[in-house]
Design a protein around this nucleic acid. Structure first.
Length: 969
RNA sequence: GCCGCCGUGGCGGAAUUGGCAGACGCGCUGGAUUUAGGAUCCAGUUCCUUAACGGAGUACAGGUUCAACUCCUGUCGGCGGCACCA
């Protein structure tokens, strides 16, 4: 039984067509009342039908095998839907319609990721609440999505900005706040189960609470934010380009501010390892792995000299063991190459390292101070990309290399990052390019500890080889030497094996208005100042709604705009205690971390999701979206999901079982000139009525050539000697398809396409233009091509010359001929297979072949056409419904059984076999598919007799049903 | 610099994963029908050469194989990501 609701008898009446709008050109007098294919007429009618009959409403619980198919939900921008959106949406829609017809219970929801900066910017500009513009945009998006005929269950729609939605986003934040990560169990656990050390316990309740706060997955820390004084606001990273604000190019300062962080690093190991079982593109998995950046090596403590002597210190250390946190007497480093310890000739600490002051000697103080100040003023960009030359300054102090007791100098340099490892390194110039460079600049000693090959003439040597100059390691290959060094260090309590990750904790707060408020209260002391203690809002008191603000203008301080909220919002009093609400808001990622869960149970007011429903529908079986979310969104939601899993709220470790990235749809190819070439030929161009529009930024800037209102047409260009020229000139052009952008004038609006060609054509075109995962240039004539196909589909069934809508006289209620049946069943087989593998472009090609064949048939069996219409329906649902109905069927076809092919009908009478001699096709023979191997060889020999004459057949290769090849001499 | 993906007609792209390269569509050419076509139907369309036969060809240069768009090595070009992560 189909799992969805069946549709009642109220099938749509096909009405006589009124004033069909000709696609283009002049009105057609005779065609005026002719039953032509008219999507503008049939598409809205079927959309209304589906909506009124709730055709695509998913059951609360799956009635059969479930399929959860999810699109990455869009940000409802003011621009409206982009033609890029429907690509993925059409792909998932095809899969869903297909699976429904295969009797699966399909969950296919849609929603809106509606918090975010553009709405807030708009609010600042117009001083209207962002909710207003957001809701308007959602309305537009909804209209556009419905216009494309997607089979979403609209009763499940949600927006991250819905108060009833972010109530549960806040609730999940409280789960994070209530969770600490137990390393032994590799699992998040309730904060109440966190073991409290005795000394903390002894200090009293406040200490215990602060200790807990330090261990929560959601915690506060001072982090750098992008403060732009000119704009008077804090900017998101993506609003900062090259150290300047995206808007207005004002300088941006990095300044520390109390921020909320999420301890995603605790889950680094699981986030990496549990990628293995997911059906995701390998490229995306690799990107996530690299982002997490796991590396293995060792932590090593270097005694800071000369306060104490090395020998006695080491003896003492061996007794007490390797401390969890290093003391002041040592400099702890992280290295992936412990085997090179004998080659460590100096050490480097980051300018922000807490020991900088202490290690700086008086003689060096001024130099070090200058250097650190300089480093602080540099942006990350300055410190990396632009800093080809290594810089640094000697601290004046030394440390002891634990393997040989030698004193090595400690330098301060910004090529060491405070945020990775321990913020300090042992420098091994012999085996590290950066250290080599630094050593060269400052004349520091270089010792090779890995034997270089004879032909090696480079600098640092990073490859494998036997250890040299390394005492007890000499002769060992890198891997063994690493292990032996770690053992040696561990036995003396000087170091230990260590795994490190590049992944940083997630800076989770934004100083913006249009985001989820944190459900956190800061306790105030008598003087009204925060006393450092936090209080979570009681889950029963959720949601914490956004307050009403008089205006959204920046107030000129880096603190969040919610600081301007009315006092009754900002200063709640609970049990006589006064609190101040947290005024940061959550980033846009928050809402998208769990929306797929809420779709399953979007009206639940008792819980964020019903556990039974969660078990029944999760995980998402197919998730399609753009590759731009390869890392962040997908990593963040996996992280949240694992926390919810650890805390027992969801049943799967991973949310998205199968992920597919759709490619980008580029604009139509346009003709470009480089800025220099454009300047040089500006006058000549204008005399030809050609103008250029600047597009792209900086080094990628080009001029897009325009003629009149549109792009430069192709016939104004010519190719000479393999180069493209502007016609009758020596101006060379380049043709290229670019990302759609307003500035290039190559944006295609879905509304226009639907108006001119129909939604079915748009859907079909986007699927036909190429493989889903590739990026492809738009082509209007391509759209016209698929529209043409749909016209042919229509005509193969409908009599276009009749006065009223009627079947073509060629359509008869007769059984198909053997050949017709074969064509049909081949099509069924191919289309089914192609949908399963998301090969939509080839599926459409097969259907075109079907139509080409049946167009030529003067008798077209109705049954075959019905089967075909079912095959077409996931791709072009409106025309399919209409034709299904015209063929005499009631109801929607949405739950008709998917056609299956009969293999016995695929067998051909004769097949063509190419016969090769020495790998070249010399003849083709017609044989029965059941021909014996010997007969086949005999027939093949005969066919290429002239090529075999006087030759000796050395070998005969027969691939049954495929080909024959004679190897001769 | 490092990692990943990709280079096939005039264009978008096919090729059962080593077995007839160019399916299907666009564009173009010719024909039929039509008062007309930017409609429809039919045929052709990788390149070179030809009356026919033939030859070359999947970025380039090699290799493995009876057989390579497909596998291997190197080079060039494009796209995306990361970028002092010790």
């Amino acid at each position: 039984m189909p799992s969805g609701p069946r549709c009642p008898r109220s099938r749509p009446r096909s009405q006589p067509l009124e004033s069909p709008v000709p696609r283009s050109g002049l009105p057609l007098p005779r065609a005026f009342n002719m039953p032509r294919y008219n999507p503008a007429h049939i598409e809205p009618r079927w959309q209304t039908y589906w909506e009124e009959n709730e055709t695509f409403k998913a059951p609360e619980m799956p009635a059969a095998e479930k399929v959860y198919v999810l699109d990455m939900f869009p940000y409802p921008s003011g621009e409206g839907l982009h033609v890029g959106h429907p690509e993925g949406y059409t792909a998932t829609d095809i899969v869903c319609r297909f699976e429904r017809m295969r009797d699966k219970s399909v969950l296919h929801p849609m929603g809106f990721d509606a918090f975010g900066l553009p709405a807030e910017e708009y609010a600042i500009k117009t001083n209207t609440p962002p909710r207003e513009s957001t809701e308007k945009n959602i309305e537009t998006f909804t209209r556009q999505l419905k216009m494309l005929g997607f089979s979403y269950d609209w009763s499940r729609v949600l927006a991250t900005t819905d108060v009833e939605y972010f109530r549960w986003t806040q609730w999940i934040f409280l789960v994070l706040f209530d969770t600490w990560f137990d390393h032994e169990q590799q699992k998040g656990r309730p904060i109440g189960e966190l073991p409290i050390p005795n000394d903390i316990q002894a200090e009293g309740e406040k200490s215990v609470r602060l200790y807990q706060d330090e261990h929560r997955l959601a915690f506060q820390a001072d982090a750098l934010v992008n403060w732009c004084p000119a704009l008077g606001t804090v900017l998101a990273n993506e609003e900062v380009i090259d150290g300047k604000s995206e808007r207005g190019s004002h300088p941006v300062q990095r300044m520390p501010l109390r921020q909320w962080m999420l301890r995603i690093t605790e889950y680094a190991e699981r986030l990496e390892k549990e990628l293995d079982d997911l059906s995701w593109p390998e490229g995306i998995k690799t990107m996530q792995r690299e982002w997490i950046g796991r590396s293995t090596g060792a932590e090593v403590d270097f005694l800071i000299a000369p306060d104490v002597d090395f020998e006695p210190w080491q003896a003492e250390r061996a007794k007490t063991g390797f401390p969890r946190k290093p003391g002041d007497d040592v400099l702890r480093v992280y290295t992936t190459r412990p085997d090179t310890l004998f080659g460590a000739t100096y050490m480097v600490i980051a300018p922000e390292h807490p020991f900088v002051d202490r290690l700086t000697t008086d003689e060096q103080r001024d130099a070090v101070k200058d250097y650190c100040e300089q480093a602080a003023g540099k942006s990350d960009l300055d410190r990396t990309e632009l800093a080809k030359e290594k810089t640094g300054v000697f601290s004046g102090s030394y440390a002891v290399n634990p393997v040989n007791g030698e004193l090595i100098p400690i330098w301060v340099a910004d090529y060491v990052l405070i945020s990775y490892g321990t913020g300090a390194i042992m420098a091994v110039p012999g085996q590290d390019e950066r250290d080599w460079e630094f050593a060269e600049v400052f004349g520091l000693p270089i010792i090779r500890t890995v034997q270089t090959p004879d032909d090696f003439d480079g600098k640092a040597y990073l490859e494998d080889g036997p250890a040299i100059n390394s005492g007890f390691l000499n002769g060992l290959e890198v891997t063994e030497a690493k292990a032996k060094t770690i053992d040696w260090l561990a036995s003396k309590a000087l170091g230990q094996a260590k795994v490190n990750y590049k992944l940083r904790d997630w800076l989770f707060s934004r100083q913006r208005f249009w985001g989820e408020p944190f459900p956190i209260l800061h306790e105030l002391d008598e003087s009204g100042q925060p006393n450092g203690l936090l209080r979570a809002v009681d889950p029963d008191d959720l949601p914490v709604d956004l307050p009403y603000l008089e205006d959204y203008k920046p107030h000129g301080r880096p603190e969040p705009p919610l600081g301007k909220a009315p006092d009754d919002w900002l200063y709640p009093v609970i049990d006589g205690k006064k609190y101040r609400r947290e005024t940061n808001t959550m980033p846009q990622w928050a809402g998208s971390c769990w929306y797929f869960l809420r779709f399953i149970d979007n009206t639940n007011s008792e819980a964020f999701i019903d556990p039974e429903k969660e078990k029944a529908w999760m995980p998402v079986d197919l998730y399609i979206g753009g590759a731009e979310h390869a890392v962040l969104h997908l990593l963040y939601s996996r992280f949240w999901h694992k926390v919810l899993y650890d805390r027992g709220y969801v049943s799967t470790r991973e949310p998205f079982q199968r992920l597919v990235n759709q490619g980008m749809i580029l604009g139509e190819p346009q003709y470009h000139l480089s800025p220099a070439a454009y300047e040089a030929s500006k006058e000549r161009l204008s005399s030809l009525a050609i103008t250029g529009v600047e597009a792209g930024s900086n080094e990628k800037a080009t001029f897009v050539l325009k003629h009149g209102d549109g792009d430069l047409p192709e016939d104004r260009t010519e190719k000479r000697k393999g180069q493209l020229f502007l016609k009758d000139t020596d101006i060379t052009l380049t043709a290229r398809a670019d990302k759609m952008a307003k500035s290039r004038g190559n944006v295609v609006n879905p509304d226009t396409i639907v108006r001119d060609y129909g939604a079915d054509s748009l859907r079909l075109y986007e699927m036909f233009m190429g493989p889903l995962e590739g990026s492809m240039p738009w082509s209007m004539s391509g759209v016209n091509g698929v529209r043409n196909f749909l016209d042919r589909v229509w005509r193969v069934i409908v009599d276009q010359d009749a006065e009223a809508l009627a079947l073509s006289p060629s359509v008869e209620d007769v059984p198909p001929t053997e050949e017709q049946a074969r064509v049909l069943h081949k099509t069924i087989k191919a289309v089914t297979h192609d949908i399963e593998t998301l090969g939509f472009n080839t599926a459409i090609a097969r259907m075109m072949e079907f139509v080409n064949f049946f167009t030529r048939e003067s008798t077209r069996p109705k049954s075959a056409l019905e089967q075909f219409v079912l095959l077409l329906s996931p791709f072009a649902p409106h025309i399919a419904e209409e034709l299904w109905h015209l063929l005499g069927n009631g109801d929607t076809l949405a739950y008709e059984p998917w056609p299956t092919h009969d293999p016995s009908l695929l067998v051909e009478d004769t097949i063509e076999i190419p016969v090769q001699v020495l790998g070249k096709v010399r003849a083709k023979i017609q044989v029965s598919p059941e021909i014996s191997k010997d007969d086949l060889i005999a027939a093949a020999k005969e066919a290429v007799a002239e090529w075999l004459e006087g030759k000796e057949i050395k070998k005969t290769i027969v691939v049954p049903g495929r080909m024959v090849n004679f190897v001769v001499r």
